[in-house]
């Protein structure tokens, strides 16, 4: 009941605290609901961020974070001067840049083509089929890739039919990225097109009517009405994609790569997994992981800033 007296004390430095207390009492069930949610985020998202301090230690599970020795930037130095640093950074960037160049525009193109289809049944059938690969598990997709690309597999059968020679395609360092990126496009292009089709579904049909009266053909409508309607979505998705430029697809890498293809397939996260988890070099793994996520975060901030400045679209 003490609370009832405080509302007048606006200039009091404690005013904010007392207002908050009142807010909590008034919304006690809302805050009660928030408790487990906040606890979840603190424990499973923020505690691991705090746990990154082991990147600056020689962490030992027996001594714990409090008792382990501090080594400063030693692990970062070790990583960056190791012969693997260049390889994994290059592979990470190349695979992601390929994914962005070829994989990012694919769903936009598909949405534009689907949008031109007037026969609803046909359109819906193609859409349903194109979503299907998205729902197949990564393990199964990779299992199918392994099976189809092995030297007795169906892809080699086709290559031989056209006069080529049999080879295990996944063991070929020159082909790994191509297989990785193209199978990714196959799996996600249909699903990725939904968001663009959703954006197009909110488009005012009068725009088309008006332009049609003005004599614009369908191609000009595509260029001047349909595509511009997608630009905000494209920009936001591109920023978000850049926010994962160093981390996309590492589970699939781990399923598909092997020591023979490390040269083109090993990325930073798969390297962290091998050194950190499999070889239990926790501190070194955490350092390489932190290096990765920091660069990634800086790229995100930069892209978001540029987009806000030049295109007036940003995540925040």
């Amino acid at each position: 009941m003490e609370l009832a007296k405080t509302p007048g004390a606006k200039r009091n430095p404690n005013a904010k605290v007392s207002r908050l207390r009142k807010d909590i009492v008034m919304n006690k069930y809302v805050y009660l609901m928030a408790l487990p949610v906040i606890a979840y985020f603190l424990i499973f998202h923020y505690a691991p961020i705090g746990g990154l301090v082991i990147a600056f230690q020689n962490f030992s599970a027996f001594k714990g974070i409090g008792g382990s020795d501090w080594v400063g930037l030693q692990h970062f130095q070790d990583f960056l001067t190791s012969p693997y640093a260049f390889r994994v950074i290059r592979n990470t960037l190349m695979i992601n840049v390929y994914q962005i160049i070829f994989g990012f525009p694919a769903p936009i193109l598909l949405a534009l083509l689907l949008n031109e289809i007037r026969v609803q049944l046909f359109k819906r059938a193609i859409q349903t089929i194109s979503y299907m690969p998205h729902f197949i598990s990564l393990v199964v997709i990779c299992g199918m890739l392994v099976d189809f690309t092995q030297s007795e597999g169906v892809i080699n059968d086709i290559i031989v039919f056209f006069g080529g020679e049999r080879a295990n395609l996944l063991m070929d360092t020159d082909l790994f990225r191509t297989i990785f990126v193209s199978s990714g496009i196959w799996q996600e292009v249909g699903w990725g097109s939904i968001i663009y089709l959703a954006a197009l579904s909110t488009l005012d049909p009068h725009l088309y009517e008006a332009s049609s009266i003005d004599g614009a053909g369908r191609f000009r409508q595509l260029v001047h009405i349909t595509f511009p309607a997608l630009v905000p979505t494209i920009l936001i998705l591109l920023i978000m994609r850049m926010g994962h430029i160093m981390s996309e697809g590492f589970e699939k890498i781990i399923l598909l790569y092997n020591p023979l293809t490390y040269e083109t397939a090993d990325v930073i996260s798969s390297y962290v997994y091998r050194r950190g988890i499999q070889e239990a070099n926790y501190s070194f793994g955490a350092a390489v992981g932190l290096f990765n996520s920091s660069i990634n975060f800086i790229i995100l901030l930069a892209v978001n800033y540029l987009s806000r400045k030049y295109a007036k679209e940003s995540l925040w």
Binding site: F44, G51, S269, I277, S293
Partner: peptide, 8 residues
Amino acid sequence: GGLIPNFL
């Protein structure tokens, strides 16, 4: 935090 801190 990434893979390692989550694992620990």
